[in-house]
Write a protein that binds this DNA or RNA. Structure first.
Lengths: 319, 319
DNA sequence: CACAGCAGATTAATCGTTTTACCTATGAGG
DNA sequence: CCTCATAGGTAAAACGATTAATCTGCTGTG
């Protein structure tokens, strides 16, 4: 059905070896021959059979991607960035789901290996460790791990959020995360408190404790920094029901720059990641690992402020 | 490095053929031999080299998945469902991005083919047609197309939304979509107006026309049905700024049951899809296509109401 | 006793490509 | 005129599995 290498060879009365060499530009083939071969390949619409090639070379040009629970709303953009970066390097991306279960995470990786991946990119589920694998692995956002290749600067992002709020004059700030069990969230909160000005009061709150945010705002807190836009949205609607409005009654900053952040009104100020850069570095690291086996050093990519409408500049009281 | 079929054969002093036959349970191999071979395979941690197998059988056990612009917020759950369904049928999923461009959609498909997929599932970008491909294709949600294998019942979903609103006593309802260029959105709206009660007034609105929703609600419309939770969220925050609150001042129903729908307060009533069922049917259709080549008939899967807090029962005026 | 039939295993071809080692003119240099 | 390097090309061996065809003893039967 589909044309093979040998079809080109037969049509041109040359050997398959010559065709292969000509198309890959590796051996010594006359310019004229190369031209004729390429022309014929084109005419037939030839593209090499990936299995034949993979079997011979030991490389499938496919990498696996393991994503954490779908609950993570960063999923789509991260996946997309990984796919695009992989494409740049001529790799396809096999995707696997860790099914919200740490155990399944390893199963997923095994499946990817068994399907023939050349390497794996994993964004681990919170609280899991990625075991040693028979093929190269690049881990994203595994803040502690040795296999980590690149992470977002979550602490730095937290610092940016608080810095922005403090510049706008806020001093009593609520830092709210969802659950302590997420290292990423803890790190973000850590960055926040680390950036506190000497005269500022930051209060750490976890949604799992069902804190009384409305009461705290009424008691004089003027701003909220969250570890996720999702939390910000939840808070925003709850405070709204209580009659507290944005940005006049309090200021709010989210995290992750999710899709809806720019759509709601007022638009949510938040902290964004360069998924593209993270993906690019992860893929770069992984391809190096695949090609040379040399370990790559872990990198941190900065986050940035997405300035929108939910942070209000406070009037200076004294100067 | 990794054990091959022949390693097992050598260790047990049998031929490779016997090992293959034993492991696949196909040929005539004595029970005792099968047991010994399986034991040895286990001991070595053998798993077959996918390229060798694929080259011989002509099947890679991998299907491709082409997703539309990332703007579609259904993306993550749909992808996940497809991956899970594929897994059930022992297929891996190669993912490709259509880069928000209709032209790239075909490029993406070509890449998947060149990478060795056995078939392709595509959720086409709005307004694009999927050309003929060298391998089987199952199209999801291509309302018109012949290649369509399964779609959600968007019109039915619209009808459910309006039905629910009408049951709660609403008669003046705003139906708001984002853009007329989306066939899915037009179909949803179509379903809505088709379900209108004789005494009801439904008004079609498109965000691209920047309609004055606040004014219309003040003028007496009591409910809004949208074609997407995203639109619902946008409206909800805008109306909130204008002092119109949910559910006392108006009722609202979204579409798609996005992540945030259950988190905001009050929680958003919306129309949900069974992504799992759609995915299951798509994969089933595709595997049939791959194995037998027999065309499968297109199916429609129903949507359902997710009843939450944004629809208010209106007091009966007359009885 | 000869032979058909069968269980249990093996041989060898095959899938499509890459790549090493080898072959054969041709022209240059001595 | 002989040798030799070299350019241009080819043959053949992998890679790791599957599977059709074949072989080898047996057993049971007429």
């Amino acid at each position: 059905m589909k044309p093979r290498l040998s079809d080109i060879a037969r049509n041109l009365s040359v050997s398959a070896a010559t065709v292969s060499l000509a198309l890959s530009g590796k051996g010594r083939v006359s310019n004229e021959m190369v031209a004729r071969i390429k022309a014929e390949a084109n005419r037939l619409g030839y593209s090499p059979n990936p299995m034949g090639k993979a079997l011979r070379t030991g490389r499938s040009q496919v990498i696996g991607l393991v994503l954490p629970d779908v609950a993570n709303p960063l999923f789509p953009r991260m996946a997309r960035s990984i796919v695009m970066a992989a494409e740049e390097h001529d790799f396809g991306v096999l995707i696997a789901d860790s099914h919200d279960s740490p155990a399944k995470q390893n199963e997923a990786m095994k499946r990817l290996v068994d399907l023939g991946s050349d390497g794996i990119v994993v964004i681990p589920r919170k609280g899991t460790e990625v075991g040693p694998q028979p093929i190269p692995v690049a881990v994203i956002d595994a803040l502690g791990s040795a296999q980590n290749v690149v992470s977002a600067d979550h602490a730095g992002g937290g610092a940016i959020a608080i810095g922005h709020l403090q510049e706008a004059g806020h001093r009593r700030i609520l830092c709210v995360g969802e659950t302590r069990s997420s290292l990423v969230q803890r790190t973000r909160i850590g960055g926040m408190v680390g950036a506190a000005a000497p005269d500022a009061q930051l209060l750490q709150l976890w949604l799992e404790d069902a804190p009384d945010v409305v009461g705290l705002i009424r008691d004089g807190a003027t701003a909220i920094a969250t570890t996720s836009d999702m939390i910000a949205l939840q808070l925003l609607t709850e405070l709204g029901k209580a009659g507290l409005n944005l940005p006049e009654d309090y200021s709010l900053v989210g995290f992750d720059n999710l899709d809806f952040a720019g759509i709601i009104s007022p638009a949510l100020t938040t902290i964004g990641t360069s998924e593209a850069e993270i993906a690019e570095r992860a893929i770069l690291g992984l391809t190096r690992l695949i090609n040379s086996g040399a370990p790559v050093e872990s990198q941190v990519v900065p986050m940035h402020l997405v300035r929108r409408e939910t942070v209000k500049q406070l009037a200076r009281r004294k100067n």
